[in-house]
Design a protein around this nucleic acid. Structure first.
Lengths: 168, 168
DNA sequence: ATAAGTGCAAATGCTTTGCTGGCTG
DNA sequence: CAGCCAGCAAAGCATTTGCACTTAT
């Protein structure tokens, strides 16, 4: 069957080659924020005849077509996620590099207004929060997993993102 | 005389070489957020015997010592600013790449609390706002420059930072 | 058929590093 | 004078690109 991303490609009139179909599928199945190397790894598992250059080209094309969004969580490699569900931000676990998504309405409004005060129209904004998982606090009563506050981030790529540095 | 940054270096027991003194001075005088190449340019103007490798090494050392803070405004090059005045964020003019600093108390608190809800302790956060200068609005009365809302950013480095991409 | 996509390897752009000789504390 | 520091050029990384060949429309 046709993956969600593949459908989007067709809608935008992209020529569908075998490798694009595979990459589209890998992206459709991803629930994390893989970097190019990871996409390459997953893609070649389906079809060995895909070069990393193609992954780079494809990911860039998809980004230009609005199918993907590029993220930079520091760590030197760009990571991608499908464009979809309304605005959300990312909280990166500094220990593991795992990413948790969260949304916050107040935010954009607040920043839009700040930009306004400075004489600017807000074009876009970049926000990443780096945190360290808190010890589960002296559990009052043995009470298991509470309602998820945010979408649970699937084991995100290895590259442990660090707050400070960005390139190396 | 001894520049502000140079004083900091001495305080932290750094060996002061001629090139470090020059770089420290350049940094002390900078009111913008120069990248390494720009620092190199300004430094060699004082003393031609400074290599770009030294600028890289120095800037990294200063960052580790907490004297400088590295920023990534997208555009592929890291930019630096002296650690000082309390937390502030950056608004980047997408047209010119100029940077305006602003502070906002509500913010950190808000994010700290969001992180908390997700089970994390906030370690650090990265926030950049990209905006486009708004037309000076049909001025009601001819009223000149109003009180500066934020520290006026000096003509910032050329590298026009763009919101989307980061490496190239 | 024909324009566009792909692989491969070479090229880029920023940043780091190995080595040798120099300078600071 | 011992150890850290600087210069230079080479090495590293992530990403892009030139070229000749394959393929989707």
């Amino acid at each position: 069957m046709e993956s969600r991303i593949e459908r989007l490609c067709v809608e935008r009139g992209l020529k569908m080659t075998g490798q694009r179909r595979v990459i589209a599928r890998v992206l459709s199945e991803a629930s994390d924020h893989p970097d190019v190397e990871e996409l390459y790894r997953r893609s070649t598992a389906f079809d060995g005849r895909i070069s990393i250059a193609t992954v780079y080209r494809t990911v860039r094309l998809f980004e230009e077509k609005g199918i993907l969004e590029r993220r930079d969580f520091g760590g030197g490699r760009a990571r991608y996620e499908p464009t979809e569900h309304g605005h959300h931000y990312h909280l990166i676990d500094v220990e593991t590099g795992k990413v948790v998504e969260f949304a916050d309405a107040e935010h954009e409004a607040l920043l839009r207004e700040i930009a306004g005060r400075l004489g600017f129209d807000l074009v876009s904004l970049r926000l990443e929060v780096f945190g360290r998982r808190r010890e589960p606090a002296p559990a009052a009563t043995k009470q298991a997993a509470r309602k998820r506050v945010a979408k649970d981030a699937a084991a995100d790529t290895h590259t442990t993102a660090r707050p400070g540095r960005m390139p190396r």
